[in-house]
Design a protein around this nucleic acid. Structure first.
Lengths: 213, 213
DNA sequence: TAGATTGTTAATCGATTAACAATC
DNA sequence: TAGATTGTTAATCGATTAACAATC
């Protein structure tokens, strides 16, 4: 029974919900609860019980019929499936307001991500200290990524620079990117890209707002 | 031919893609291009041409057979559909690193959102000036929302405070929330809630990363 | 007219939900 | 044993894609 399964097509939605289940289990674990049913997990994560069981079934059998799941065991299994059971060295590229905020974000460490380096192409920002790290020039990227084993890059650069910066980061060997600029980046298929696009969120929100114009 | 359609079920994915199409049209418009086909929109937005046409068809007929779409006209139609054709007064609640960064975010104004007020429950932060606005205490929320007509609230408060702050914001009359805390908020069904959850993005990303543990 | 491209219907695909036998 | 709850199969639902008549 493998805890990871990249052969059978696992819907992306299932992976995202796994993150929610992980939070629920962490929360229940802190409260000292020992077992939990798919019904209760679903109640907290806003999913149907059958959805919870289906999502878990992509990766193995983690429960006991009639009894439910052991909270701590299932938590560890999901951490393992998601691959967050070890620290992931992360770099931040673009140390403006947003980049600085992310570099200091306390939620990182607690969730298994460690910011190991900051970069900026603006010479005026290079050398500054943000959250315990010194901002480095882009030309140091290759060396630093190699030496730190950085796996994830957060791109918090202006729209017009995003594609070029993405190219540099990828050529330095980073395989996973989170892009915060409101542009659609072109990246090779083997690169994992996620977009956090505030403008898109707000525009989508607007649609559901009453028009009253 | 109504440009808005809230009766027929429009998939949320379609609304989100509309934001992408809007970007493509803005970009093409700046380049001076006058007409565009669904094929070309799809090429830039990474969608099938039939998907583009289907998405648009939820809201009306905007093209001409054989000729395609007028770039500027379609751009205005989509702005209208999304409801971003007028400024949306927005408040930021929680003026830590992230909140401050968002309050200063230049992409806002250019996309039709205007930050009109900042709030924080920490008395030490109240009175500070961030990006041209003075941070106000939570007890001013009701009055300020009423007077400014604020429609959207960005919640950048710590995890443990998020639910309580959401309640206050909603009771003050705000109907649309973007929550940046990594928690699932409970809100009444008529409230529009979107979550921007960095931890979730990173965990999902991890899943697709090679395990090498 | 011939070629291009829309708007829409029908076919396909995939994800969610329900149902239920297995089993604690 | 009776009740609870899983894991999984089958049914449902909804979204994407293909196909094509309409028409510029």
């Amino acid at each position: 029974m493998p805890t990871t399964n990249r052969e059978r097509r696992v819907p992306e939605g299932a992976v995202e919900r796994l993150c929610d289940y992980l939070r629920v289990l962490t929360m229940l674990g802190r409260k000292g609860q020992e077992t939990v049913s798919s019904e209760e997990i679903g109640m907290w994560a806003r999913a149907k019980a059958s959805q919870v069981r289906k999502d878990l079934s992509y990766f193995g059998e983690f429960g006991r019929r009639g009894l439910g799941y052991n909270v701590e065991q299932l938590r560890l299994h999901i951490r393992d499936i998601l691959g967050v059971h070890r620290q992931r060295p992360t770099i931040v590229v673009g140390v403006g307001n947003l980049g600085s905020a992310l570099a200091c974000y306390p939620g990182f460490e607690s969730h298994g991500f460690q910011v190991v380096a900051l970069f900026d192409s603006d010479p005026k920002r290079v050398g500054y200290r943000v959250g315990g790290l010194v901002v480095q020039p882009m030309r140091e990227m290759h060396r630093v990524v190699r030496e730190s084993g950085a796996e994830i890059a957060l791109l918090t650069v202006p729209e017009h620079a995003a594609q070029e910066v993405a190219n540099v980061v990828i050529s330095a060997g980073v395989r996973a990117l989170v892009n915060f600029a409101p542009v659609l980046l072109a990246v090779p298929p083997e690169i994992n890209l996620r977009n956090v696009d505030l403008a898109r969120e707000l525009e989508t929100l607007c649609y559901y707002l009453p028009p009253n114009d």
